[in-house]
Nucleic acid binder design. Structure first.
Lengths: 183, 183
DNA sequence: AAGTTTGTACAGAAAAAACTGTACGATATT
DNA sequence: AATATCGTACAGTTTTTTCTGTACAAACTT
């Protein structure tokens, strides 16, 4: 069941297979705003047959425990790994979230939602201020500029409202009704 | 209509308004894997009332033309800005793609599709190789390890197939039937 | 054809991000 | 209570990315 039952030759075969997959998956994790090495750490955890401690990871990655700590925190923030409790162990244990559908939707709920909200906030605030300015300036070249800016912002607001609804479908899981898991 | 018709006071009002919006939008563009300053450049183009040249951008951003060139190329790659032809001008002109729905879906088609494809490729290849190895090893501890790895990979493949279908809805626009633009 | 102008490749400088070792608070063990 | 262990904050170093200036090819102008 575990890797240490394997002889040297077999171990090499398994690790070669894994390494190639980890490499590709880790590289593409920049889409999640995750560094290459943290992506690599994720790949390591993906194939681990047990939850791992920071020391385990440091050993396998040949990196400092500090780096493992920050790497794991980033992955935790994105709900890509979970902290696991295991009686007997004083150390914190981590394992990947194997439900990648969940990982994907969580990413939107966590990261994109925040961006949408802050953008909507500033856009709405700016539109209001422009309205006030336009009311004062009845006849002036600035009026046209302000109106043009306002129109652009209102278009953006529409888009963000749509994006917000898309994120809603991720959050409540209805995206899987719209685009079913199995075809 | 244009900014240079405004007096100093009015100009300051408009630029203050724009700057705040640009700042927020630019900051959140890291979700697209775009640097903060390129995000800022995008914001500048968003409010520009005419297509801009590299020299225009360099002046407004107080940055080198070289940086503008690479920044614009990144934005072009993501279809976030378009090259515009205008008779009389020898210089290349650029303007933002104002259809942000399109920008969003293009991002998935361009970036995520590539990641999905490379990941699917390596995963399918690895599963095949594992199948071959399992056939050889009838009774050995490595067999269990390989089977476990294969199961994990097959789960991932399922997920990527789903993600591929989601990206299909972005590419053909059916996402806007599933999540309508207007509620 | 000679002379401009434009956009980008490239090498080096500046800035940002990732990584490490030490230190220390918090918690568990003796 | 004293000791040991764990995880992370922090400062300094290394690595990576971004930015700049120079150089040059391509295209346009005269």
């Amino acid at each position: 069941m575990s890797l240490n039952e394997l002889d040297e030759n077999q171990l090499e075969i398994v690790q070669k297979l894994r390494k190639r997959v980890i490499e590709v998956i880790g590289r593409n994790m920049d889409l999640y705003g995750i560094s290459h090495s943290t992506g690599h750490l994720y790949g390591l955890l993906f194939f681990a047959d047990h939850p791992m401690t920071l020391d385990d990871m440091g050993r396998e990655m040949a990196m400092s425990k500090t780096s493992m700590s920050t790497g794991v925190r980033n992955l935790l923030d994105l709900h890509m790994v979970n902290k696991v409790w295991e009686k007997g162990s004083r150390k914190d244990l981590y394992e990947v979230e194997y439900d990648w559908y969940q990982t994907f939707t969580d990413f939107f709920v966590i990261k994109w939602r925040k961006a949408v909200e802050s953008n909507l906030l500033i856009l709405r605030k700016s539109v209001k201020e422009i309205d006030k300015l336009i009311a004062d300036e009845q006849q002036s070249p600035i009026r046209d500029v302000l109106i043009r800016d306002k129109e652009k912002m209102q278009e953006s607001i529409k888009y963000y409202i749509w994006l917000d609804r898309l994120i809603d479908t991720m959050e409540d899981g209805t995206i899987f009704d719209l685009v079913p898991r199995e075809e």
